[in-house]
Structure formats: C-alpha cells, structure tokens
C-alpha cells in the first residue's frame, strides 16, 4: 500500500540532498546553504543535518599528540601576531639606520647597507605584492568554483524535481489507468459515526482483476493523539482483513493503493483504532461502503 504524501518529508529530503551535494566542497559552501534558506523550519532541518555531519568525526578514536605540536602552533601564533603589523607598516623598514644618520665609526663597516637594506626591503615588498596578487587570484578562482558549483546545484535540484514530478506523474498514470480500465468497480464510502464529519467521504476503485485497488479519502479529521484510522476489507462471511492505517493531515488528501485485495471482499470500512492498528476492528467505524458499481 502506498504511503500518504507528506510534503514535510519531501522538503527535509530536498534539504539533505542539497547538503550532501555540497559535502565534497569547502566548509563555507556547506554552511552557506543555511543562508540560502529563508524558512525557519528549513533552516532548523539544515542545521540539524549539519550538526549530524559534524558528529560523524567523533566516530574516530582520538589520537595523542606530542607537546611539541602545540608548542610549534603557539610559537607560530606568537610570531604571526608580531609579524602581522610589520608586514604592512613601513615603520619597520624605516627603523633601520639611514645613510644620513650614520655615525663616522659606522661608515666603513656598514657600506653594504647602502644597497643591501634597500634591496631587502624591495624584495620584501615585491614578495608581499606577489603574495597579495596570488591571494587575490586564488580568491577569484574559489569564487568561480563556488559559483559554478552553485549553478551545478541548481541544475541538480531541477533534475531532482523533474524526477519527482515524473514519479508523481507515473503514479497518477497508473491510478488513471486503473479507474478508466474496463470492468472497474466503484464503491462510495459514507460517514457512519460521530468522529466523521458529515462531508467526509471515500471512493474505492477496484480493477477488474479484483486485486488492484485505489482508495481516495477526503474530509476526515486528524486522528486524536495515540489513534489512527484503519482500513478493513470485509468478505461475505463478515470477516475483516486489515488494509493498512493512515493519519490524515488537515487539507491533505489521503490516497491509498495496493496490488492485492482479500478474495471475496464485499464491503469496506474505516475505523478509528489505537495508533499502529488493531488485529481486528475495535473502535468506531467512521466510513463504510458496500455498494459497488461497475462503471465501464
């Protein structure tokens, strides 16, 4: 029997699908998906899956590290803190003694400073310039890659949606084939008890092979807490056989179908049962139908 169409589940799957598509890309690309989602529920779902991905790393047993590893890191941090400003501030270069400030005693021994220091300074600036240029190029390439990846994502989403639509179309096709096949019988289910609103109804289509069936139900109220509706096929001896359970949501049409039906079915009943269903009807019947009509 097919499941009830659940738009929330499809939305969650679509978000997860998009997140998984980005799993091969940078951490930014993964987190940026959150920025692209505007709906609060969608963001929550995305965030939960992102944290799930983060938790995966805890599967690996931790590895011990030598204290030197941390010492090296802290030394790097310290040097980066000290070197950081000096890379951009010319004050460091200017602090070296200039030829005008040179004392007579220094004159002979420091002549190489005349060309070595300016050369070193020039090299430093050239290297800084080159590094800056390379950084800009790298950033541009990253942006291009991310942009192309986003486009690929969009194409993929469209392809996924097309596949979904194709799936739904196939489902509609098969139901249409059933309800328009020759020898198809139609049985109307009508409300019979208080839990069912007066305008609730169901229509059961049974193919000529008496096996394939399709049931459409409208207007039933959502189940009370801990309860679900259960479909029963009843044979000539009055023995009920369960056809499955469902829990309708407001405004969502319930559609059930299957390729098998108990032999000798003469009536269909829907009852309110404990969640998960009962071995035999125990709750009040809400819809019932026993008059089948051959329409084609």
């Amino acid at each position: 029997m097919s499941q009830e169409f659940d738009p929330t589940k499809e939305r969650d799957d679509a978000i997860l699908d998009r997140l998984l598509e980005r799993l091969s890309r940078s951490e930014d690309a993964l987190e940026r998906l959150l920025d692209e989602l505007t709906d609060e529920d969608e963001r929550r779902v995305c965030r939960e899956y992102l944290e799930t991905i983060g938790l995966l790393a805890y599967e690996v047993e931790p590895r011990p590290l030598a204290p030197e590893v941390k010492s090296r890191l802290m030394a790097k941090l310290e040097s980066s803190q000290q070197e950081g400003p000096s890379e951009v501030e010319p004050a460091t270069v200017a602090s070296f003694p200039s030829s005008g400030q040179r004392t007579p005693g220094e004159e002979k021994g420091s002549r190489w400073h005349d060309w070595a220091l300016p050369l070193a300074a020039g090299l430093v600036f050239a290297l800084l310039g080159l590094s800056g240029w390379q950084y800009v190029q790298l950033e541009k390439q990253r942006q291009t890659i991310d942009r192309l990846a986003d486009q690929l994502d969009q194409v993929h989403q469209q392809t996924t949606k097309l596949a979904e639509y194709q799936g739904r179309l196939d489902s509609v096709d098969s139901r249409l084939a059933l309800v328009t096949s020759s020898g198809v019988e139609v049985c109307t289910l009508k409300p019979v008890a208080d839990p069912a609103p007066a305008d609730s109804r169901g229509v059961l289509f049974v193919a000529s092979d008496r096996q394939h069936w399709y049931l459409k139900i409208e207007g039933l109220l959502p189940c009370p807490q801990g309860r679900s509706y259960q479909v029963w096929f009843i044979n000539q001896e009055g023995v009920p056989v369960s056809g499955g359970t469902f829990d309708p949501k407001v405004g969502v049409r319930v559609e059930l179908s299957s390729e098998t039906m108990p032999a000798g079915t003469v009536a269909v009943s829907i009852t309110l049962e404990p969640a998960g269903g009962s071995p035999e009807p125990s709750g009040p019947a809400v819809l019932y139908g026993d008059e089948a009509m051959r329409i084609l």
Partner: peptide, 18 residues
C-alpha cells in the same frame, strides 16, 4: 565563525575535514 550556522565543534570538524 557564526554561531547561527553551526556549533564550534562542527565548525572545527568541517574546517579540518576540508
């Protein structure tokens, strides 16, 4: 780092993994 996007541990895991 944006706490609205991920926890710190997940942020670190994602950076390390990348």
């Amino acid at each position: 780092y944006d706490p609205a996007r991920s926890s710190v541990s997940t942020w670190l895991v994602l950076i390390t993994r990348s």
